[in-house]
Structures are given as structure tokens and as C-alpha cells.
Amino acid sequence: MDYTIEKKIPSYFQGNQTISKKDLVDGIRKDFPNLKESSINVYLSKLKKEGVLKNPTRGIYALQGNNEFCPVINSKLKRLFNKIKKDYPFIDFCIWNTIWLNGLMRHQPFKYYTIVELEKDVAQSVFYKLKDKGKQVFLEPDTETFELYIHNSDDVIIIKHLVSEAPVIETENIIIPSLEKLLVDMIIDTNLYGAQQGELDFIYESAFSKFEINQGKMKRYAQRRNKEKEVEHRMNLTLAKN
């Protein structure tokens, strides 16, 4: 019986990336009318543990199978991360490059920036240290700075303040922002993500179709950034298309 239900699970999605728990339970009960709802709930929990199903947010199920977000971290980025880590071993920070977003876009930007996001208390200190080493570095640049200097420069490092409890991940011993964080920040920081503003719909659709996205994580971070409604609205539009 268990194997029979497992084989039927993909049919309940009918090409949809996600479905509600109610729709999934209703589908199973229709095909297996002798099963009690309590037994179905136990079985769904079993399928989650086995990796057949995922539960990205409360009351929503999806089929397992999308890839984890694992961008290429080049040696230059690693050296910068390790230098900051050596000088400031106890701070929270992450590092990344805007080129990582290319795989989600139709049109490829010509300029890429290295981003360092760290605790506000040390941001200025890190800024001056990198400046002293001859780096083209900008601290929390505004719209005018982007237009006059950053857009016309190469090999730029941008220092941003890291929001507390921002979702980050560790890969290759380097702390980077999670894809959930990037998707939320993209809606808020229109200067840094200027090249992506015209493709937000396409970027969200690409991200949700290619990678594992934890919607609960996105919503919690969006709430911390006071943009929960905007982010949830865009997620809902994306999921409706998928």
C-alpha cells in the first residue's frame, strides 16, 4: 500500500511546483478511501523524512528534486573572505559577487561587484583597511555614488551592513548569503540590484524552478526588513505561474 501511494504522489501535483496540504490529502483520500486522515498525515511525515516530499512553508507541499544554491566561489573571493576573517575573527559577515545572479537572468550585466555584508560596528574599519590596500571600495553607497563612480568602475567592492539574523549559508568554509536572502534584498536594495530590477519576475521564476527555496525563511527575513507584504505578494505571483 505504501509503495502504491508513493507512486501516485507525483500525479497529485499535475505539473504544479507546489500544492496545498488540503489538496494533497483530498487527492490521496479519493484514490484510497479506506485511509483515515490521521494515517495520511503519518505517511506524509514519512515521505518528508525520506526526501520524497518537501514542506517549504506551513500547509504547502512540493516534490523533492530541485538543486541547492551553490554558486562558484573563486579564489579572489576566498582570499578576501579569509583576510577579513583573520582580522575580525568574531564578527558575523558574508561575502558574494553579483555575477552569481546571471544564471537567473535573461540579459547579462557587464559590471559585477563584490559585496561584503558585515556588522555595522566594524563596517567603517573594514572599509578603511581595504581602502588602504588600494581597493576600490564603497561603504553603503547611495544612488548618486552608484551613478557617478560604481557604474563606471571595474573590480569594485561594496560594503553593506548585515541585517541581524539574515539567512546565510556556509560553503567551502566561506559564509555566503542564501538565495532566500538575495531574493528578498533584490526587492529592497534597488541601487545594488539595479541591473536586476527589470527582470524581477523572470529571476523569481528562475529561482523557484531551479533551486530549493525555503519560503518560510524568506518571509521571516522579509519581516525583519519590513517588506513582508511585498515579498509575499511576489512569491505568490511566482508560485501561481509555476
Rank of each mutant, 00 (worst) to 15 (best):
Y3Q: 07
T4V: 14
K7T: 08
K7L: 10
K7H: 03
Y12K: 00
Y12P: 01
F13M: 04
F13T: 07
Q14E: 13
Q14C: 13
N16E: 11
Q17N: 11
S20L: 14
L24E: 01
V25E: 13
G27F: 02
R29E: 11
R29T: 15
K30D: 05
K30A: 07
P33W: 05
S39W: 01
I40G: 14
V42S: 12
L44K: 05
K49A: 08
E50F: 03
N55S: 14
I60E: 10
Q64G: 01
N67E: 11
N67V: 06
E68S: 15
E68R: 10
P71I: 00
N74L: 03
S75M: 04
L77T: 15
R79I: 02
K83Q: 12
K86R: 07
F90W: 03
F90A: 05
D92V: 00
F93A: 01
C94Q: 12
I95P: 07
I95W: 04
T98Q: 04
T98K: 03
I99F: 03
W100E: 09
L104S: 02
M105L: 11
H107D: 11
Q108L: 09
Y112D: 14
Y113L: 05
V116E: 05
V116I: 15
L118E: 04
V122Y: 14
A123S: 15
Q124L: 13
V126M: 04
F127L: 01
K129H: 11
K131G: 01
K135Y: 10
K135A: 15
V137E: 09
V137K: 07
F138T: 09
E144S: 13
T145K: 14
F146Y: 15
F146W: 15
E147L: 04
L148K: 15
H151V: 09
H151W: 01
S153C: 13
V156E: 05
K160W: 12
K160E: 14
H161S: 05
L162D: 01
E165Y: 13
A166V: 06
P167W: 10
P167N: 12
V168N: 10
I169H: 01
I169F: 01
E172F: 07
E172I: 00
I176W: 07
S178A: 15
E180S: 04
L182K: 01
L182E: 02
L182N: 00
L183A: 09
V184Q: 03
D185M: 02
I187Y: 08
I187H: 11
L192N: 05
G194H: 11
A195N: 13
Q197E: 10
G198R: 13
D201A: 13
D201L: 12
I203C: 07
Y204T: 10
E205M: 05
K210G: 12
Q223I: 00
Q223S: 12
Q223P: 00
R224F: 05
E228S: 07
H233V: 05
R234Q: 12
T238L: 00
N242S: 14
N242H: 10
